[in-house]
Design a protein around this nucleic acid. Structure first.
Length: 288
DNA sequence: CATCGACCTTG
DNA sequence: AAGGTCGAT
C-alpha cells in the first residue's frame, strides 16, 4: 500500500502505546482483533499481510490512523521547545486505534507495572484464555474474549501473574458480559462524560480512563498522565515536581492529575493526546 | 479534599 | 521500582 502522508511504523509501534507487537527479521508482527498482522515499511510503501484472513487497506488505514492530518496536528501541538524536539525526533509517530475491550483490559493490567511485566501479563492471559492461531508453524494467541474471562475464576486469572488486577479483570468482564453494549454505547458521549463513565469501572482511575479514551474512543484531547509525563509537564511549566521531605516524588493525587491534564489541554489544544505520545516516547528514550 | 498504606509480581 | 487504584482515616 502506498502511503499518502508521512508515517513512521517503528516509532508508532515502539513508543509504548501497544503491547502486543514485536519485530523479527525486519517485520513487525502483531495480534489485532483475532488476526495476526505482519507489517513492514519501506519508505512510502507499507507492506502487510494478515492471518488467518487477509485484511483490506481500509483496516490498516484505520488502525494506524493514516487518515489523521498529521502535518496539521503537529503544527497545532508544537507549542514549546520540548515538544518541538520530540516532534523533530519522532516525526511520523501516529496514535494506534485500538479496540475498546483489548485496550481497557491492557491498561488495567498496566497499572503499577513495567512494560516488560505488562507484556508478560497480556501474553499469559492470551495463552490461557485466547484462541490459538498458527502461522507458519508458529503459535500466536488472540486476546481473551469477554465471555471467556467472565466465566473464569479470579484464582485462575491470577495464574497469569496479573496479581491483584485479577479481581478487576474478572469484575469488568462480568459487567460487560451482563451488558454487552456497556462499552460501545459510551462512544456517543463526549470526552469528559466518557472518562467519568469509564472511571466507574473497577481498576479504572483517571490514567487508565484517559488511555482508553485516547486509544480506543478517538478522544484525541485526552492527555493521560503517568510518572513520566508528569515530569515533562513540570519541566515545560518550569516548575518543580512536588517532593516529600526525603526528596522522592510525591504520589500524584487526583486533583493534581486533573489540574495537569487540563493544563495540557489548554496548552496543546484538541490534539493534546498526540502531544502526550510524542512527549512520552521522547522523555523515556532520553532518560535511559 | 489530602494523606497513607496495601496491593501482586518480576526484573 | 514499575505507564496506579482503592479504601480508610
Amino acid at each position: 500500500m502506498k502511503l499518502e502522508s508521512h508515517f513512521n511504523l517503528d516509532y508508532t509501534l515502539s513508543c509504548g502505546q501497544v503491547f502486543r507487537w514485536g519485530k523479527a527479521n525486519g517485520w513487525w508482527y502483531g495480534i489485532v482483533d483475532g488476526s495476526i498482522l505482519k507489517v513492514r515499511q519501506e519508505g512510502d510503501e507499507l507492506h502487510f499481510s494478515a492471518y488467518p484472513e487477509d485484511v483490506e487497506d481500509e483496516f490498516i488505514k484505520s488502525y494506524f490512523r493514516l487518515d489523521d492530518d498529521l502535518t496539521n496536528i503537529l503544527r497545532i501541538i508544537n507549542k514549546d521547545a520540548t515538544i518541538n524536539k520530540a516532534i523533530q525526533q519522532f516525526n511520523g509517530l501516529r496514535i494506534v486505534r485500538q479496540s475498546v475491550w483489548d485496550c481497557l483490559i491492557s491498561y488495567v493490567c498496566a497499572t503499577n507495572a513495567s512494560i516488560a511485566i505488562i507484556e508478560s501479563m497480556l501474553r499469559n492471559l492470551s495463552e490461557m484464555f485466547g484462541d490459538e492461531i498458527v502461522v507458519n508453524g508458529k503459535a500466536f494467541f488472540s486476546f481473551p474474549k469477554v465471555k471467556k474471562l467472565a466465566k473464569a475464576s479470579v484464582n485462575k486469572i491470577k495464574l497469569c501473574n496479573v496479581g491483584y488486577r485479577a479481581r478487576f479483570l474478572s469484575e469488568i468482564a462480568k459487567q460487560v458480559e451482563n451488558n454487552p453494549n456497556l462499552l460501545e454505547e459510551l462512544r456517543n458521549s463526549d470526552y469528559l462524560k466518557l472518562r467519568d463513565e469509564l472511571r466507574s469501572l473497577p481498576g479504572v482511575g483517571p490514567k487508565v480512563a484517559d488511555c482508553v479514551s485516547l486509544f480506543a474512543f478517538d478522544k484525541l484531547e485526552a492527555f493521560p498522565i503517568d510518572v513520566w509525563i508528569r515530569r515533562v509537564i513540570y519541566q515545560i511549566k518550569g516548575a518543580a515536581i512536588p517532593r516529600t521531605k526525603d526528596g522522592t516524588e510525591k504520589p500524584l493525587t487526583v486533583s493534581e492529575y486533573t489540574e495537569l491534564s487540563s493544563f495540557a489541554r489548554r496548552h496543546y489544544g484538541k490534539f493534546a493526546g498526540y502531544a502526550q505520545e510524542y512527549l512520552f516516547y521522547y522523555i523515556r528514550s532520553k532518560d535511559r
